[in-house]
């Protein structure tokens, strides 16, 4: 059996990407838990790209129907995830005059 670096690259991508996600979220203050959940919800909206790939390569009616569903659901995930996250994070805008104490809420 040929064990080449190309075949293992997928495992390395999964390992390093997983570690990156773990480290990035490691030390977030509790007030950011919900916006970050929404933000990561937006990021997996990238599934729409996979849906487009599958739909463009569809050759039967059932493939077209499922592909259409995949693109529509993925697009909903991405677009909705963006607007929801942006609305949540707008409350952290530092130029907001009403709540200047907000940015000092970080945990040490």
């Amino acid at each position: 059996m040929d064990i080449s670096i190309a075949g293992l690259a997928a495992l390395y991508i999964f390992l390093l990407a997983g570690f990156a996600g773990w480290v990035i979220i490691g030390h977030v203050p509790a007030i950011l838990h919900t916006p970050l959940m929404s933000g990561s919800n937006f990021v997996h909206g990238i599934v729409v790209v996979g849906g487009i790939f599958a739909l463009l390569n569809a050759s039967t009616l059932s493939e077209q129907m499922i592909g259409f569903l995949a693109v529509a659901l993925g697009a909903a995930n991405a677009a909705g995830g963006y607007v929801v996250t942006a609305r949540m994070l707008a409350m952290f805008q530092t130029s907001h005059p009403a709540k200047p104490a907000r940015k000092h809420k970080r945990k040490g």
Binding site: A17, G18, I25, M37, V43
Partner: peptide, 21 residues
Amino acid sequence: NPALMIAGMVVGAAGLMLTLL
């Protein structure tokens, strides 16, 4: 598709971390 692999796995791990937090 590496973009899906990276973004998906980052969210998988970040989501797990968030869940624990």
